[in-house]
Design a protein around this nucleic acid. Structure first.
Lengths: 161, 161
DNA sequence: ATTTCTGCAAACGATTTGCACAGGG
DNA sequence: CCCTGTGCAAATCGTTTGCAGAAAT
């Protein structure tokens, strides 16, 4: 289903690598395949597990060395959502300006896009004398449904509708 | 000059501690005094150094154990601005809704407040079925001045005007 | 052939924790 | 007194790195 995004991810990565005189390898193939096999956020360690299912020879070191390349090339975005470890978000290729709401009750992460937010951020940035690069909004919030019914349907859902 | 904020910080902390059956100690005094002696963001290690100047007996462990109390009580805010380590921001008492712009060239951090941003965040959050708690915007950007003149005056300035 | 990549295991660095003692209430 | 807080040093845990061999170009 997201084969298209996997394909273009690979092209983007190898274009980026070529520009820096870096090489195509089977391990990098497996890692990128793994990273774009999901729409969920993942930790480095989880990416290792996913990549190993594709190519058992992938090592932890290679995952940690490849991750910065994926971030620099714009394929993944690093998220600090308050958990112990960094998360990596593979959804920026398809939704380059999306943001995150984190439920402080159940820790669920909701992705959202808002054009007004986008415009306002640009406006503020320029007013301050800068040109925007990466904008990141994190909203921590309580789930109204959980408050009212003691239960929250969102808890079970995937991260994006 | 910010003695007022130091005083109220201490009151808030001890109110919070009392509510949990926790105690007043000279080390916690030194740590809070240190934390609010500056408007700069600081790392845990830097807080240790500052606190030790006030009370030499403060240990690293106590700083690390106190920091979460300061965050939970709303006195400090933890920032993930992309550096290696977490930063702590003592300016939320005075400016509860401020946000951060990070210059990707010189790493300088600019604090800003914007009422429209505030309103928009609340609006988006409610639309998603949540009640906002903490909102955090981080904008990474290039400095126009640096681009045009190869030099940036902001580089030298303190973090807030 | 040359240079980048890789896996391994050791090194790192920030943070946490177990312990026995100190010190608030 | 009782229980929380503390310093110390060891332990943790995610991440990084040095090295010698493997593999891309």
């Amino acid at each position: 289903m997201e084969t298209a995004s996997r394909e273009s991810a690979r092209e983007i990565l190898y274009g980026y690598l070529a520009g820096k005189g870096l090489r195509k390898t089977t391990q990098r193939d497996a890692i990128i395949e793994a990273a774009f096999s999901t729409k969920e956020h993942f930790k480095a360690e989880e990416l290792l597990v996913m990549a190993r299912k594709i190519d058992l020879s992938v090592s932890r070191a290679t995952v940690y060395r490849t991750l910065p390349l994926l971030v620099e090339s714009g394929l993944l975005r690093e998220l600090d959502l308050g958990g112990e470890t960094k998360l990596y978000d593979p959804n920026f290729l398809e939704h380059p300006t999306h943001n995150h709401l984190v439920c402080v009750d159940c820790k669920k992460i909701i992705e959202f896009e808002d054009i007004n937010m986008e415009l306002l951020e640009n406006c503020i940035t320029r007013r301050l004398g800068f040109s925007p690069t990466n904008k990141m909004v994190k909203i921590e919030a309580h789930c109204d449904e959980l408050r009212q019914h003691g239960q929250c349907a969102k808890r079970a859902t995937g991260s994006e509708g």
